[in-house]
Nucleic acid binder design. Structure first.
Length: 585
RNA sequence: GCGGCGGUAGUCUAGCCUGGUUUAGGAUGGCGGCCUCCCAAGCCGUUGAUCCCGGGUUCGAAUCCCGGCCGCCGCACCA
């Protein structure tokens, strides 16, 4: 725990992050990020984009959607029903249980298999009373069943009945915009949509610093593909990468040790489809490059009852931390067509893509023809709009009536069966509609940032510093005149301005001893330090120092930017020095 | 939400048990200056604390009691 304490102290003192609303006592689960924290987060986000989005930009696009969405979205997504927990407490020992789980388990013990899916609090209470279920811990009587919804609720506009919710995942904004996004990519598939943004969950008890926040940042991709063709065109690029994986079947046996398989093996053994394996391989590489070695990562298969309501298969990417043990930094879910189907059902909007058949086939098409007389009877002059709405949702209308229902809502109109004629026609086509399936990798930025900090912490002798990867370090370089002398200071300040203009984050300091300034820079993970000394004013050279080895070389002032750029790109200190013809010190 | 422990300058911490020389002490940091030419050196000055909040006990509370907030640990929860 000593290392954890050292890290905590640096985080507080150097203001990476701290509890929000502190002067009013603070609220659990909310944190502010300071200047260094913001920069570190931004760099991690950019690295994520460089890993998951930019290389595949012909396939994966990026959007940004609102944090607040209206109630129907979460009705359709299942969050209003499934994001609610029913909790029941023992009146004697005070233990709390998930009411639905408790009822199912207790009745299962008595050989009664029932599903509590969709039951209300009152119905659960009735079951508890009926079957005389008591506290499994102490046998005491159970109290009232209370419901707890993890969605933050708010109202949109001045009318309180217009409910809105803070999104619990960025995904829904993407699903809801699916028709437009599909149009943007020319209705080709597969395609993916990335989103980085804030989400909120009203957690019962936030705990563990950044590990369980009520508001946090997600980096997600919804990858839409044809379930009949689950091939990932870029799979060859990752198939050799290793994935430490504990597949479901081993989790079920109680195994926690991962198998180290290549992405190819993971897909071949059916542990995940190519798309999931693709993202998992990239995720493992991403965390590795952030400083978390593969041996401290694993992808844990989720058993059916552990999965979210929308998921047919899930892996949690876990990393081993000193402070919290194994924590989930990303979730990889196979969401099937759950979300798009749900939104299609609730909104009436079509969520199809088309696949081309190898040979044209004759299909029966159910066509809908509006019955103007019947429509005018009910809607009068608005007949034009109604007909337009019916035409736009022809397939949906046909399907609904096909199921034998007598009315259907399209847009703001209720269309009854008598308002349309339904005709079955035969047609040749080589297109077939389908609702795409979705594979979703979802990353928690805040947790990743913590894991990165913990893994970066280095303690050597009396020295404590952050060995952050150069491309995520919040500050790129420190500029330090060896002493505070006017000509050194001037050179230092102008170098600072020059580098800043070129897009580097620069820390300038001319106060105190050089040793303590090096230490202060190392402590926040600045990879390089430039020192201006007696040679600088005469020959225009400076020394540049490597954070990890404290090794120094001498380069020309005009090469500093090149050196920084190389190191930020991943070139080692020695290689950068060699490439620029640096002189040993 | 339950139980245990904790909360003193930016940071770390002494004092609390045993209430009163404590205008709450130290270290480190910040700021100004001196000195300083390579890995947290020295000197001078200065700045720093709602002792978490509220209430109670008492002549007197950082200190004792109660409630709350926040944090840590365990249990529960984490769709």
């Amino acid at each position: 725990m000593r290392r954890v304490e050292l890290l905590e102290e640096i985080i507080k003192r150097r203001l990476l992050y701290w509890p929000s609303s502190e002067i009013y006592g603070g609220v659990g689960g909310f944190y502010d990020y300071g200047p260094l924290g913001v920069q570190l987060r931004r760099n991690i986000v950019e690295k994520w984009r460089r890993t998951f989005v930019l290389p595949f930009q012909d396939l994966i696009i990026e959007v940004e959607t609102p944090i607040i969405m209206p109630e129907p979205v979460f009705k359709a997504s299942g969050h209003l029903d499934h994001f609610t927990d029913y909790v029941v407490g023992c009146t004697k020992c005070g233990r709390k249980y998930r009411a639905d789980h408790l009822v199912e388990e207790e009745l299962a013990k008595r050989g009664l298999k029932i599903s509590t899916e969709g039951l209300s609090a009152a119905e659960l209470e009735r079951l508890i009373a009926e079957h005389r279920i008591v506290c499994p811990n102490c046998g005491g009587p159970l109290g009232r069943v209370e419901s707890f919804n993890l969605l933050f609720k708010t109202t949109i506009g001045p009318y309180s009945e217009n409910a809105g919710y803070l999104r619990p995942e960025t995904a829904q904004g993407i699903f809801v915009a699916f028709p437009r996004l599909a149009e943007y990519v020319g209705r080709r598939h597969p395609f993916g949509v990335a989103q980085i943004g804030r989400v909120a969950r009203n957690e019962i008890s936030p705990r563990g610093g950044l590990m369980r926040l009520r508001e946090f940042t997600q980096m997600e991709i919804e990858l839409f593909f044809d379930p009949q063709n689950p091939k990932c065109p870029y799979f060859a690029e990752v198939e050799g990468l290793e994935i430490p994986i504990v597949p479901e079947e081993l989790v079920a046996k109680g195994q926690t040790e991962p198998l180290f398989l290549t992405a190819r093996e993971v897909a071949a053994r059916g542990y995940a489809n190519e798309w999931m394996a693709f993202f998992m391989a990239l995720a493992a590489k991403f965390l590795k490059e952030l400083g978390v070695p593969l041996e401290r990562q694993k992808f844990l298969g989720k058993l059916p009852h552990e999965r979210a309501h929308y998921s047919a298969k899930s892996y949690d990417q876990m990393v081993l931390t000193e402070r919290f043990g194994w924590v989930e930094v990303s979730g990889h879910a196979y969401r099937t067509d759950y979300d798009l189907s749900g939104h299609m059902r609730h909104s009436g909007r079509e969520m199809y893509l088309e696949r081309r058949l190898p040979a044209p086939k004759e299909v029966e098409v159910v066509r809908i023809y509006p019955n103007p007389n019947a429509i005018r009877e009910k809607y009068g002059d608005r007949i034009g709009e109604v007909i337009k709405a019916i035409k736009e949702n022809e397939a949906y209308v046909a399907k609904t009536f096909g199921e034998g229902r007598q009315e259907v809502t399209v847009g703001e109109y209720i269309v009854t069966r008598d308002m349309v004629f339904i005709k079955t026609e035969k047609r040749k086509t080589d297109l077939e509609k389908f609702i795409p399936h979705v594979v979703e990798p979802s990353f928690g930025l805040d947790r990743i940032m913590y894991a990165v900090l913990e893994h970066a912490l280095a303690e050597e002798g009396g020295r404590v510093y952050l060995r952050l990867p150069a491309d995520v370090a919040p500050i790129n370089v420190c500029i330090l005149p060896i002493v505070k002398r006017q000509d050194y200071v001037e050179i230092g300040r102008s170098l600072r301005r020059e580098l800043a203009t070129e897009g580097f984050l620069v820390w300038y300091d001319d106060e105190g001893t050089i040793g303590s300034r090096y230490a202060a820079c190392d402590e926040i993970g600045v990879p390089l330090a430039v020192t201006i000394d007696e040679r600088t004013p005469t020959d225009g050279t400076v020394t540049i120092r490597d954070r990890d080895t404290r090794k120094q070389v001498r380069i020309g002032l005009r090469d500093v930017a090149k050196f920084l750029a190389a190191v930020r790109k991943g070139v080692s200190f020695d290689e950068a020095a060699k490439a620029l013809g640096a002189m040993p010190v």
